[in-house]
Amino acid sequence: MSNDDKLNAVETWELMQCAKEKLGAKELQKIFQRGQTQINRYCSSPISEDHQRNPLDRIHILFSNLCEAGGEEIVRASINHFADIIGCRVAEQGEIVPDKDTVEEECLDDYPEKVAMDNMIAASEHPEKVRRQGEKTCREIMETVISYETHWGKLHNQS
C-alpha cells in the first residue's frame, strides 16, 4: 500500500505535515517563503507551544468570513480553482430547496440565469466563468424541478 493510500490526516497541521513529508521541508520553504522553523510550526500539533496557524487554517478563515459576508460564489470559485488540479469540482451536499412560492415563479427564476450564461458565451467570457454560471443555472433549474415534483405530488395525492 502506498503512503497516499494510508493518509489519515484530518487536521490542517496533519495535512501540512504530510505535505512536508511528501515534498520536503526545503520545497515548502520555497513555496511559502518561510524558514525551516516556521514550516515546522505549521506542521506541529496545536498542543505544542511552538504551533502556529498554517496557511490552510488561514484559507479556512478567509473562506468562512467570505461566506458570512455573502461571498459563497467567491469561495466556490476558489475551491474549484484548487480542485481543478486533481480534475474535480465542488458539489453541494445540502438538499436543494426552492426559493419561490410557486412552480411558475421558479420557472421564471430560471430564465435570467440561462440568459446570463448565454450572454457570457456571446461575449467570449473565460470558460471557467461560463461553467460557474452554468452550475448556477443548473441549481436554479433543480429548484424548479423539486418545486414541480412537490406540486405534482399534491395534485396526485402522492406526498
Rank of each mutant, 00 (worst) to 15 (best):
I86M: 08
A77E: 09
E143R: 12
R58L: 14
I31F: 00
Y42D: 00
E149V: 05
H151A: 09
R139Y: 12
F32E: 05
R89V: 13
F32W: 08
I96F: 05
G87Y: 03
E128L: 13
V145I: 11
A83R: 05
N65M: 09
Q36I: 14
C138K: 10
P112F: 00
S48V: 06
K136S: 12
E72M: 09
E149S: 10
P55K: 04
V145T: 08
A91R: 10
P55H: 03
A69S: 14
N80M: 09
A116Q: 05
C88G: 03
S124C: 12
N40R: 01
R131S: 04
H60R: 11
K114L: 13
D50N: 15
V145G: 09
C107H: 00
K100E: 06
K100P: 01
H81Y: 11
M120W: 07
R34L: 07
Q133E: 07
E106H: 09
D84E: 12
E149M: 11
E49S: 15
R53I: 10
H51E: 10
I31H: 00
R139L: 14
R34I: 07
G71M: 07
V90C: 13
G87T: 01
I31R: 03
S44H: 05
C107N: 01
V115F: 01
Q33Y: 09
E106N: 10
I74G: 12
K30G: 05
G87D: 06
S147G: 10
C43H: 00
G70N: 04
H51L: 07
L66I: 02
I96S: 04
E128S: 10
I39G: 06
V97P: 00
R34T: 08
C107Q: 04
I59A: 13
R139E: 14
S124N: 14
T144K: 01
S44Y: 06
